Amino acid sequence: MSSAVLYLAIVAVWAVVLVPMWLRRDTEATGITRLLHKRPEEDEVTEEVPEESPEPRRRVTRAAIIARRRRRTTGLAALVLTAVALVASGVAPWWATLPPAALLAGHVALLRVAVGMDAARHRAAAQARAAAARTRALEARRAAEAAEPAEVIELVPLDEVFDQYADDRRAVGE
């Protein structure tokens, strides 16, 4: 009975980790379809086969990465809780909780490393933006220094200053 539970736990762990990865990778350009279709040079086909350009891969957004991490963490936590429930009910021995707990601990350790890498990437991007801004400011200052100074025009004062309200003058429309 305990060996069956152990096998079931192993299958569940592999299913939680590998099945979603396998389903996401199974596209026309990659995955199982690549294994099923042989390349022309492997078949020794003599006729010319036109090359098909692979579809451009979707850019992975930060939100998609966070959602994938959240799903994996939730699945591993559910697996640990299931193993604990099986041990608590007496169906499985105590050590049946070790593989799921080790997987969850490893996943959390990888998340810590990923968070550090994300923070380093954001710091590097911020530093690059600051360096670019400093470079632009320096170039603007040099361009301003190299430009000819503006010509100062001295205004000659007029004897009579126009005042629209003086001497019963009115502005247009009043």
Rank of each mutant, 00 (worst) to 15 (best):
G106R: 03
M117F: 13
L111K: 04
D159I: 00
R129L: 08
A83L: 02
T74E: 08
A12V: 02
W22A: 15
E42A: 15
P54S: 00
L155K: 12
D118S: 07
A114S: 13
E174C: 04
H107Q: 04
T46Q: 08
V113F: 08
L98E: 03
G90W: 01
P54W: 04
A63M: 06
R25H: 12
L103K: 02
D118R: 02
A125T: 07
R24Y: 05
P56H: 01
E47N: 06
A4H: 12
P157C: 02
R123C: 04
E41G: 09
G31M: 01
W94V: 06
A114R: 11
P157M: 00
A126M: 13
A133W: 13
A64G: 08
V91F: 14
E151I: 07
R68V: 01
E148Q: 14
R72Q: 11
A114Q: 08
A171F: 15
T46L: 07
D118V: 00
E174T: 06
A67D: 05
R59M: 04
V80S: 00
A119F: 03
R24E: 11
A63W: 08
W94G: 13
R68E: 11
A147E: 06
R62N: 07
A147P: 11
M1K: 14
Y7Q: 13
A131I: 03
V19F: 03
V172E: 12
T33Y: 15
T73M: 04
A143Y: 09
H107M: 02
A126F: 11
A4Q: 09
R39Y: 12
V5R: 10
L110K: 02
V113A: 06
L8E: 15
R71I: 02
I153F: 15
T97W: 03
T74M: 07
R134I: 01
V80D: 00
R72K: 01
A137N: 05
E44M: 12
D167Y: 13
E44F: 13
A137C: 01
L86G: 03
A102C: 10
R24Q: 14
A131M: 08
R141S: 10
I65C: 03
E52L: 10
R169N: 11
A114G: 07
V5K: 11
A78Q: 05
W14L: 12
D118A: 05
E55F: 07
A144Q: 12
K38L: 10
T46K: 11
R59W: 09
A124P: 01
G106F: 04
E139Y: 15
A125K: 10
L155T: 12
A124M: 10
R170P: 06
E51R: 14
A126V: 04
Q164P: 14
L138H: 15
T33D: 13
S2Q: 14
Y165Q: 04
A171P: 15
R129D: 11
R34H: 06
